[in-house]
Design a protein around this nucleic acid. Structure first.
Lengths: 314, 314
DNA sequence: TCAAAAGTGTTATCCTTACACCCATGT
DNA sequence: ACATGGGTGTAAGGATAACACTTTTGA
């Protein structure tokens, strides 16, 4: 049986209040991640292969790239086969990557790719304006039905979705998606099992193949990584205001942060430095522009940002 | 060109004051990790495949298993080909896994596998009895030579090995290994490049193929994960004393911890619970036996252990 | 002059770090 | 009795969370 390694990449940028990912809409209207084959004869490393075809297809010079996970489940792969000119019986294994870029506006014509806000695929993940009503309205009841009488399921669901007074943990993106999948509440599940979709429940927009799982993995990784490595700056322009930085972090985490505590903690890290310059024309007091001090990666524990979540609810 | 996916696994157990990994000594005397092929026709998932052949070869019923990373660099793979009955021109990609177990004593006869302390491959990583002298004696000078005049190299080396007053970060296992590799200070490097080994410098014992890199990845992952998930209990028996727990954590991290602070933090997590029972006959006051409270995974942030490192030097 | 957004000051509380000292057993 | 580990009390200092209030611009 033939074996093919595919490379998928979640390219993330921040623009207009949301994290966005580069999406390839397919004929069947399903959103797909940029996806290419790995040619063992030609490519020396996965990363080189990835950078290569992303550059070709989109004109993007990927900057920050990191491997996420390798997905190999048979019953969840489903056919990107056509895309790769692979034989029908080929087994496709895909290595997922996360890439960060600032060029949210640059969309090449060569590809019909689009930037799409990632929360349309994960509407339960955005808590910036409080806990989304859809969690308790649309997700909790069917989850409870699914878990009824099963202690382990109940506690997993409660923990993941913050159900019985448990608090929300922004890093559990993948656990939540897997739970919805197991409970049959996402369309991908029905599709993989060849079943009809469940009665009208449609938790977020579906994606092609297992791409939504890959996206969930990317979101989880990025949210976690922010806290121990200064990766957020990969998403920022050379100069930025502190509020812009905070809004970017908030968008990624899906949580509102406490302004002053965020700044105090940021200052302690030594990662940013004021340029004397001011931003103007934003309809308020002008803000100072800051820049990332790459040099200071050396000092101290080379940490990431602290994320002082605002707990008070609206 | 044919493509083969291999699965390698770092099986970790704790015994007699050191973390140990299951090693397969090969004909050429190089240590190798347990390694098997993934058969796309037969196996539904990587994990099932892995559990399958580990069970077969060693009798081990793997419990905790997690994917680490997928290694695909051509010039660093080098031939496990023979082992897999693969054609000479096959490209081998390997998916690395981490497994944790308590059965450090159980070594099956079917395989000539052995448990080996992981610090023989990474002698610079064990700081439990202070900073190893070999860092400043054997590693620092050639590293400085290699980095001479190159600011980026210098600062990477200083940060990774705690050179100019920088402090040691136990999580940077992989960065350190990669640095030694780039600087040509580990045998694997010379081997991969087909060069003679560098003048007498031999930083830790070499391993087959890129297995030492996989081991470094496993160590880094485990050290990091201890701090945010209670995985340490996968290495403990059902009942254990708090000192035994602390010694296990110390062995993994390669750092001595502060007794009382470790206990206080542990208590706060709610992960352990005293059984009334006592241990006896250890040549001192008997210690109370504790057990892992799995139930409490629910509460709070489901964190891991805090690791209050002892800073005072000897 | 008022809305909008930028940018402080201050405090209570909790966690971390680091000190040192007491306790129960086997020899 | 003393060596060997087991097991605590306390206090300083720093980090966090939560208060609200002042400042500077554009409309």
């Amino acid at each position: 049986m033939s074996l093919i390694i595919g490379l998928s990449v979640v390219i993330v940028a921040y623009d207009d209040e949301t994290p966005r990912v580069l999406i390839n809409p397919r004929e069947d209207n399903l959103a797909a991640l940029p996806f290419g084959a790995f040619d063992p004869g030609q490519h020396r490393t996965f990363e080189l292969a990835l950078r290569g075809w992303v550059k070709q297809q989109t004109g993007f010079q990927l900057d920050y790239v990191e491997q996420l996970y390798t997905f190999g489940d048979r019953d969840r792969e489903s056919p990107d086969a056509a895309l790769l000119n692979a034989p029908d019986d080929a087994r496709i294994v895909s290595v997922g990557y996360l890439a960060l870029t600032q060029q949210a506006r640059h969309v090449p014509e060569t590809l019909k790719a689009q930037w799409r806000g990632w929360y349309r695929y994960f509407p339960w993940e955005d808590h910036r304006r409080g806990r989304p009503a859809m969690i308790d309205r649309d997700l909790a009841p069917p989850l409870r039905t699914w878990a009824a009488g099963n202690g382990e399921r109940l506690s997993r669901a409660a923990l993941a979705f913050g159900l019985d007074g448990q608090d929300w943990s922004d890093g559990d993106v993948l656990e939540r998606y897997e739970l919805l999948y197991e409970a049959g509440l996402v369309e991908e599940c029905a599709r993989d099992r060849g079943l009809a979709s469940r009665r009208g429940i449609r938790a977020g927009e579906p994606m092609a193949s297992d791409h939504r799982r890959i996206l969930a993995t990317a979101m989880a990784r990025l949210r976690a990584k922010l806290r121990y490595r200064p990766v957020i700056f990969e998403l920022m322009a050379g100069q930025f205001t502190l509020s812009a930085l905070q809004r970017t972090v908030e968008a990624i985490l899906g949580q509102a942060l406490h302004k002053q505590n965020f700044r105090r903690a940021l200052e302690r890290t030594g990662f940013v430095e004021g340029t004397g310059k001011m931003e103007s024309g934003t309809g308020g007091r002008p803000a100072e522009l800051f820049r990332f001090k790459r040099e200071n990666l050396r000092r101290g524990a080379a940490r990431g940002l602290s994320a002082p979540v605002v707990r008070s609810d609206a």
